[in-house]
Amino acid sequence: MTKNEIFAKFNDLGNEKRKEMYIKNGASENTYGVLLGELRKLAKKLGKNNKLALELWNSGNTDAQWLACMMFEVEKLSLDEVRSMVSQLTYVDIIDKFISEVLCNSQYVDILMKEWANSTKDNLGRAGWKLIVHKISTGKLSDADLEDILANIETELQTANPGKQWAMNHALCQIGITYPQFTERCISIGETLGVYKNLKVAKGCTSAYAPNWIAAGIAKRKK
């Protein structure tokens, strides 16, 4: 299947309500609103194909970039390609998808994590901290590494740009959930900083306020 054939498929599968939701959440107008279930079906049919994935990605279309994240052969992406790809992103859901589906398996994780986490650009800051979240979730970081991360969070979380702030808060919560020896410390930091404490939460969703998120995460792991 070629890029043009895939876009014809997008046109048939486009969902106006989903498109409106994507755009409301920060996607560009270059969006069809294809349901993720349909994109997964396409990805399964197409398989891994780095060349086609790059063509889809470079189109700038939201649906194409979602699909590309499921098709990349990460070992074939160069460091400069990855830097260029992420630097152009503004839609946070695609940033998160690219990090979790593609970059967390890259040989460049440590380089990019350090490079992006300290960036003043919100998209890069979010990407860097999402890579830190991935590192935390492995359960293999030393106490010294975790202390360094928490020191940065205590200093920067309240004043970080929105995208980066969300990822930093995720890192705080992930430490509290994954490393029992740090649970009370992370809850205390969350209470002191108060980030997202007053954020409205939809029914059935978990609060982003760190003490609540950590408690929910621990309860889920015990099931």
Rank of each mutant, 00 (worst) to 15 (best):
H170C: 11
L52Q: 02
D122V: 00
V133A: 10
I136M: 11
K140T: 01
S106G: 07
E156D: 15
A202D: 14
E16I: 03
A43C: 01
I189H: 09
D80V: 07
A208P: 04
Y179V: 00
K220G: 10
F7Q: 08
K41F: 14
R18C: 09
S100F: 13
Q174C: 05
F72T: 02
G125E: 04
G47R: 02
K223W: 07
Y196K: 12
C205R: 13
I132C: 03
N105K: 15
G37C: 03
E156A: 03
T138Q: 12
G128V: 03
E16R: 12
N212S: 12
S207E: 01
L150I: 03
F10M: 01
W213Q: 07
A151L: 12
I187Q: 05
F182N: 07
D63S: 04
G60V: 05
W213T: 00
D96Y: 03
T120D: 14
I111E: 12
N169A: 06
N58H: 13
K200G: 05
M1R: 08
C104A: 00
D80S: 15
I23W: 11
A171M: 06
R40H: 10
N61P: 14
C186Y: 14
G125P: 11
K51V: 08
R126W: 10
C69D: 13
I189E: 05
V195C: 00
A210L: 00
H170F: 15
F98I: 02
L67C: 04
M168L: 04
Y108F: 14
W116T: 00
L46G: 07
L13Q: 10
N49L: 00
S87L: 03
L157E: 09
Q107C: 03
M1P: 12
Q165C: 06
T178H: 09
N169F: 09
W213G: 01
S87Q: 07
E156V: 01
G26R: 05
H170E: 12
V86F: 07
L89P: 12
K19W: 04
E55C: 01
K44D: 06
C186S: 01
K97A: 14
L146W: 06
T192R: 15
W213S: 04
K121W: 08
Q65T: 00
S28G: 12
D110I: 02
G47F: 06
I177L: 06
K51T: 15
A219F: 02
N161F: 06
A210R: 07
N25I: 05
D12A: 07
D148I: 12
G47K: 07
I111N: 11
L141E: 10
Q65S: 09
L13P: 04
K41S: 11
S119K: 05
I187C: 04
A8N: 08
K140D: 13
G139Y: 08
L124V: 00
N198P: 11
Y209I: 05
W116F: 03
K24C: 01
I187W: 05
D110A: 10
Y32H: 11
S84I: 03
N4A: 08
I132Q: 14
E38V: 02
K220C: 00
A160V: 00
L146D: 11
K197C: 02
E191S: 07
G128P: 07
M1N: 01
T31I: 05
D12E: 15
S78H: 02
